[in-house]
Every structure is written in structure tokens, then in C-alpha cells.
Design a protein around this nucleic acid. Structure first.
Lengths: 223, 223, 223, 223
DNA sequence: GATGAATGAGATTTCATTCAT
DNA sequence: GATGAATGAAATCTCATTCAT
């Protein structure tokens, strides 16, 4: 009951999950969907149990409380990004290509993981109360990776020297995330489904353009 | 009870509010604070009544339901932005200055209205369910203003011709808003209080820089 | 909600209780009966609400939790003994009469307050966990009274000098209380209803006999 | 499953217990501790299973229900007193010594068996509901023994003739038991740990003093 | 218009017990 | 005989809403 991470039983290290592990995974998946949709307060344990096809009692057996389950959902989903991250930030010869690739990976991760986008948004409103039980460990893991990646970008002379990396990261993140997190509101103004491949590529192109060029016609600057 | 907007009674058009109007205003202010903090689900009618120093029954008298009160809170706060907006988007001779000024106004509006930032974020997660009862009217009012403003920007040759205005608006909004909406998470990485005047100016400078220049050193582009 | 003691409202200092006070009193009376019967764990809030003819919600409104209600029940009932106590330990000329009178009062208090006997017994098993939230204040009030009473007893030469007052009190209490607290088990061995007046007098006589042939200096007996 | 007393299997009448018997004994011991501490309602089957290092299912296998297990715990522990009793009530030449010895044995049995003290107290509050499933048989066994013992006391002229034996037994029991059952409450008023050998002897001395200055015919004392 | 008391429906959590292996 | 997973019923507690004055 102490250690909530799911261990594979000896018998079946590969592939198959024990009955208990399978149940826990079902609960986590159902809870991810519902918490992402309705937030911690708005979600009902009954609903999660029904969606997981399991008796409500088992949720308390495995996760001790609704709140705790929520934290585990965060852990599971935040970890996914970390996993993608290690892949996305691989070095390469062309620094522009390297950064474009990282942004693309991140963007499509968000496109493919609506629950993640929403969980992150709930947590922003929760003042990261629950995420803070999970993030420190993940950041410890991710930080060296990210640091190397950024240093490489600077060394290669990609970033203008007067650019504050902190602000840059906040901004890139904002450009990617907001397309998804505000979708409900923006969709009416869009020519077609914002999740259509062409629209996604369009947004990504805009982001790249925006990042690499700014909005002003070159040669016309007079700031 | 149909029309929820507050009309001044004939007797006191100027300045003073009747007892009833005063109560309604107190409720709306208290509700703004609490809904902004905890969202619709997370807020308690009892808490709002206590904060408004009014009997809970009165909330139902004036607003009929918690949900309805929430919608009125949205209306009140969204209207504030509209009011600022008319001022921020005034034309001028220098198109760069005009747009910088608009961004600055918006940025400092957000800086000064944490409740607005949060209400907008809750609504994004609510799939704009409640905001949709309020936004159409406001957008009808705001749209011509915004359209004129953007056309002026394009006519003056400020925006690169291949720039999609929709994306541009989404991006500018994202760059401004995310600094505030993710503050809780970012603060630990910041050198000082993110709301300190110097930090706000720094962020604004970054946004302008970002918008007008992109991240790459000019002359080095090879995309 | 802070102060759980029941204050009479200004309007009706004498006799009548306000609606709210009446409800609280009904809850406390019902809870006394049920907690005395079944203990904290064994009692159901639903049952108490039904017995008090009130909505369950009000119990939480007035008392915040089942546990807290239990503590207030203890306070109410323990206070009764304190009230009796001030009357029972009045001084007099004949020390033997004085002490007999005190014992008689205590004994008949127990006889008439089965709930008290049981509440005290539950608390003994609860390791006085809840009583400890109540007793300190009551003991502070009762102590000087008791101290005077005992000193008077000693000054008058009633108690043998080698008698440990602490043990004496424990013993007198045990002799009185056990008749009631073990009644269920003893009744089968008794000739008639243990609560019948004659049986009560018989027990009291035994206790006096037992005590006075124990605590009095030999040669001074005049019972 | 009808007869809940534990029979030794033929194979191992002496010393060793079979696996099954060992399990049952472990359950009974764990259950004794926990039921004594928390009572029937307050104890959790899970907790007992954990304490007995056994699967919960086995408790149902051997004892059918929690309630039934509780009864068996009572049987086991009440039997202990009966066992001691036969030893404690041995006749002797000096009737005063005989009775003092019996009281001492009983007193130290209680001192050494906190679980017994508590189980007896829970049962008093349960109105002997569960004990009644166990006591009749034990009393049948114990009664002749006790009767002989008391008759011997009377024949030898130890008890004053006007003494009601029933009351006397209740009183002696109360004097011994209350020291332990009210310990939690009394301890603060005691000079040192109430279970310290010296304190126990002090209490026993008080009891004897109390009893013998009470029950013995005057003029015959020779303590 | 204003208030304090009350309520019913439903939320989270708990627990003795049983199934399947 | 033994085990881990599962369950249904019921407990405590919560909250938006309404009654009575």
C-alpha cells in the first residue's frame, strides 16, 4: 500500500499484467479520462469506478483516496511527456533542425494527448498543488537533458545572445499549448476542424515562422 | 429576474447605489474572488454569502442559482476587458507604436486582473460552457473595433503578408496570458517576484522582442 | 460555530429556548441516549438524527462531527454530576452524617442516570480520549470543593490517619459504580430487580457498612 | 465448525500444534489484543488478519464471522480466570490467609491480564450479550468451587453473620477491578506508574485493609 | 428585502464478507 | 488449507436549495 508505482510480478515480466496490475491500470486510464475532462472536484469516484469496470472499493484499496488517485494520474501522464522528451531533444548537426524537431515533437505530443493538455491546465488553476507532489522528481530527471539541449542551442549560435532562455521556453510552450487549451473557444473562428492534420501543420508552421522570424517583414524593422 | 444586468434606479442614476444594488454588487465582487480562486465546482455558496456579508438566501433571490451567479461574474469581468479594449486599440500614426501599445495595455490588464486570468482559464476547461452565454454579445460589440484595428495594421504594412491574423492573435494572447496563468509553476525558476514591476517590464520586452524579431540573429537565417 | 455551549438568546433568558437551541438540545438528548447505549463507534448518526426528529445535516451544522457531538454529550452529562456534587458535599455538624449523605447522593445520582454510568464506562475503555477534552475544566471547578470536603473529614477525625485518600476515593467510587455498571451480569443472581428501591437501599447499606467498618478509627464507631 | 473449542489432533497430543491449530491460535491471540483494545465494533477484521500474519479468508474459515471470533476470544480469556481460580481458592488452615490469598491471586491475575480487564469491561457495556454465550458453562464449572470456598469462610466464622455474600463478592471484585479499568483516568493523580510493583502492593494492602476492617467480626481481628 | 433553520439528494469513504484459483 | 482480488451495503459527511417568519 506504501509504494504506489506498479511493479510487474516476477512471473510475467514481459507483456502481461497480473490481475491486480491490470485493475490498477484500468482505474488509472479511466481516471485520466475523467479527471482530464472534469477536474478533481468535478469528477465522481462512482463514475471512475464505472468507467474502469471495477468496484469503487478497489479504488480506495489501491489508491487510498480520490486525491491520491488524482496525483497518480498526474504522475502517469506527466511521465509520458518526459519519455517523449528524451527522444525529442536528441542532438544533430543542424541546430535549426534540432530545435524545429523538438518543437514539432512537443506540439504533436500535445495534439495527441488532450488529457495531458487538460490535466496541466487544471493544475495551473490548482496552483500546482497536486503536481507539486510529482514534478520535483520528474524535473530532477529532465533538467540535465534540457540543460544540455539548450546549451547546445546557444553554443551553435542559434539563439540571439540577448535572449532570456527562461522567457523563451515559456513562450514556446505558450505558443504550442494555447492552440489546444483554448480550442473550444477558437474553433468557431477556424475554417475547419482545428485538429485536422492540415490545420495542425498550419499552426506548427506559424509557430516556427513566428519563432524564427517574428512578425515584421525583414528589412522593414524600425523599432 | 429575466434581465440580469444591473440597472440604476431612476432615483439615483449618479453615484449612489440603492441598498439592493449595493447587495448585488457585493455578491458579485465576493463571487468573483471565490469563483476565480476555486472555480464553479470548487466554490461554496455559503462561502460566497459569508464573504459578501449577506444572507445566502439573497444570492438566490438575486441570481436564482449558483450557476447563474457564475455567468454574471463572467459577464462582469469579461466586460472589463472590453472596456479596456476600446481604449487600447486607438489608432495612431506609427503602426508599430500602435500595436505595441495595444499589447502593453492588454498585458497590464492581465497583470492587474488576476481574477480575469483565472476565470478565463476555468472557462477554457469548462469548454466555454458558461462563457458562451456571455461572449457572443461582447464579441459582437468588440469585433468591428478589432477588425478595424487589424486592417489598419495590415494596410500600414506592419504584418508580413503571409501572416495568418488568426494565428497571430492566438499567439500574442498566449504570450501574454501564459506568463500569468502558469505563474505558480514558473515562479520557482524566476529570479524575483514575477509580479514585480521590473519583471513585468522584462516579460513585456521579451514579448515585443519575440514578436518583432523572432529568436534568430538576423543575417544568420538559413531556414 | 466556535462556541458550542448553548447560550440563551436575549429575548428569552428564562425558560424558553430559541428554535435553534431547542434543536441542539434535542440532538444532545437523543445522542446521550444512543451513545450511552452503543458507544461512539456503535452509534449511527442517522439513528441520532431520527431520534432527535431532525435532519442529519443539522447535526453537522451544530456539532461539526460525530466525534465532536460525542464530546458535547460527555460535557453535558459530566456537568450534571458536578452540579449534584456541589449539593452533595455540603458541610454539617456530624461528620459521619456528612459523608454518608455524600455517598448516598452519589449513589442515587448513578441510580438515576444510567447514561452517565455507561458514558463513563465507555470512556474508561476509550482511555478517556474524549473525556480528556472535557474533564480538565470540570476538575478545576470541582477540585477545591472536593478538597475542602475531604479536609473537613480528616480534621473531624473521621478517617483513620493511615488511610490513603486517593485509594479511598477510588474504592468508594468502585463500590457505588460497579453495582450499576455490572448490573446486566449480576441481575440473574439477585432476588429481585436490582433497581427496585429496596434493593438499592440494601446495596447502599452494604456500602456504608463496608466503608464505615473500614475507614473509621476503631473505638469511635457510633453508626 | 460446530464445536469451536480447539482439539489437539491425535498425532500430536503433546506439545506441538498442527499447522491449522497454530493458525487458529495465532488468530485468537491477535484477536484478543485487538478486541481488548478496541472492542467488537471498533476492531477491523483486516487488522486482526494482519496482526495474525494470516489471510483474512482463514478467519472466516475457522471462525465463520467476526462476532463468532469475538465469542471465542471471550471463551479463551474467561477460561484463563477459571484456571487461576481453581488454584487461588485452595483451602488452608488459617481462614484469613485463605481469603487474602484468593484476593491476591485475583488481583495479580487482573494486573497481568489487561486484555481480560478490558474484555470484561466491553462485555459489561454490551450487556453481556456475547459473554452470555460463554459464561453459563464456565459458571457451572466454577460455582461449586466458589460455593465451597465461601461456605468454608462462613463456617470458620470469618465473615460477620449479617454480611450478604453477594454484595461482598461484588464489592471485592469492584475494589480489585476498578484500579485497573479506570487506570487511564487515575494515573495522573498517582505518584508513580500505577503498575509499578510497589503501587500494586499498596493498592492490595488498601483493599485488604478495607475489607478486613469491614468484613470481620469486631473483636476477632488478628490481622 | 432579509434572515436563520432546515432539508434531500448525493458525495466520499469504510467494512464485513465472498469469489476464483 | 491458503490466498489476493473483489463486492455490496452502509456509514459519515457535504452542499445547493427552500421554508417559515
Amino acid at each position: 500500500m506504501k509504494d504506489k508505482t506498479i511493479h510487474l510480478s516476477n512471473a510475467e515480466k514481459v507483456g502481461e499484467l497480473s490481475r491486480s496490475e491490470e485493475s490498477q491500470r484500468r482505474i488509472l486510464l479511466a481516471a485520466t479520462t475523467i479527471f482530464a475532462q472534469k477536474g478533481l472536484e468535478g469528477s465522481r469516484v462512482d463514475e471512475i469506478a464505472a468507467a474502469a469496470h471495477i468496484n469503487k472499493r478497489m479504488i480506495y484499496h489501491y489508491f487510498e483516496s480520490k486525491e491520491n488517485l488524482y496525483v497518480e494520474v498526474l504522475r502517469l501522464n506527466y511521465t509520458k511527456l518526459y519519455t517523449i522528451g528524451s527522444w525529442a531533444m536528441q542532438p544533430g548537426t543542424d541546430p535549426v533542425k534540432v530545435i524545429k524537431r523538438a518543437i514539432r515533437e512537443y506540439f504533436y505530443f500535445l495534439a495527441g494527448h488532450d488529457e495531458f493538455v487538460r490535466l496541466v491546465s487544471w493544475e495551473a488553476l490548482n496552483e500546482e498543488k497536486y503536481a507539486n507532489r510529482v514534478l520535483p522528481q520528474l524535473l530532477d530527471l529532465a533538467e540535465p537533458m534540457l540543460r544540455d539541449f539548450l546549451q547546445e542551442g546557444q553554443r551553435s549560435g542559434l539563439f540571439r545572445t540577448n535572449l532570456d532562455i527562461r522567457h523563451l521556453l515559456v513562450s514556446i510552450n505558450a505558443l504550442c499549448l494555447s492552440y489546444f487549451s483554448r480550442r473550444e473557444m477558437l474553433q468557431p473562428f477556424w475554417p475547419e476542424d482545428m485538429m485536422a492534420p492540415s490545420m495542425l501543420e498550419e499552426r506548427l508552421a506559424h509557430i516556427e515562422d513566428f519563432i524564427f522570424n517574428g512578425i515584421i517583414k525583414h528589412g522593414e524593422e524600425k523599432i
